[in-house]
Amino acid sequence: MSKFIGLVQNEHMKTFRRLSTWIMFGIAAALLITIAAFTAYYAEDSSGDWRADTEQQIQDLQKQVEDGDVEAAAVQQDLATMQYQLDQDIAPVQSDSLAAYMESVMYYCAPFLILFIAIIAGGLVSTEFGTGTIKLLLTKTPSRFSVLTSKYVSMFITTVIFFVFFIGFSFVVGGIFFGFNGFDAKSVIFDNGETVTNNLLASTIRDYGLYFVQTLIYATIAFALSTIFRNTALAIGFSIFISMFFPTISFILSRYDWSKYILFNNVDLTVYNPGNVPVVDGMTLGFSVAVMAIYFVVITVITWFSFMKRDVTA
């Protein structure tokens, strides 16, 4: 077991001694700081009375409906949400607050997490083939199974590190720009005809968790391509292509009931959050988790089998 830990340590050393990994952290840090700066710069003046503002908005919307400019059904949700905020005395979340900033970072920067992890995972096995170091890696006592497993475990830990970095760094940057307060900021959500509230910080952390599952699926695909093709460019390029276009293609197919068995219609678990709807009617969280688990097992079995059985000619 101590040798397996040594193998994981090795993989970590190789990942974090590479300049490219630190460039990714640098890009992420720059991105998060830029978003904070823009948010602070363009923030609306929030010194006014939010109750008066909200009441004004409700009146405006009602007037538009009466005039026939907008359909009543279209604004029904907004009206209900705003009325709920007035009734329950819940101030709308200001965009220049820590919680709102962290939430927008999650929405806009999470695709970068997939990108970064796909780049790391896509090179994990194939670079060893590319540089020929695979020959040294496989001519030692550890079995091929433990070599590949240590790489996957290292990839998993690297993914966790990236997520912790995003959450931690956006918290610190947000706190510096907008003050460490407003932890109880609540957003109002219209779910199934009912109006509910949720804590914005807590739901952001929850969404990171759900996004972690999605990232891990794409990382596993990149890892598999890297192992099977033994070519870094192909593995990274193809997995980024998959993460960008396959969800869209799958979504187009979502009018067919069978499309709920497509992996990419199941990876985004945030569709099961209050206020959201799944891709295909009748899909549940349990169903999506089961579909992902089946795909995961199939992909990993093929990957491990390919790595353990094939000749090394690099």
Binding site: K3, N10, M13, K14, R17, G132, T133, K135, L136, L137
Partner: peptide, 22 residues
């Protein structure tokens, strides 16, 4: 086997540490 391919971005010492762990 064939060329002595090592991890070029690591120092010689870390390369040896890498294989010592194995």
């Amino acid at each position: 086997v064939e060329n002595p391919e090592m991890y070029k971005y690591l120092s010689g010492y870390l390369n040896l540490v890498h294989f010592a762990r194995m």
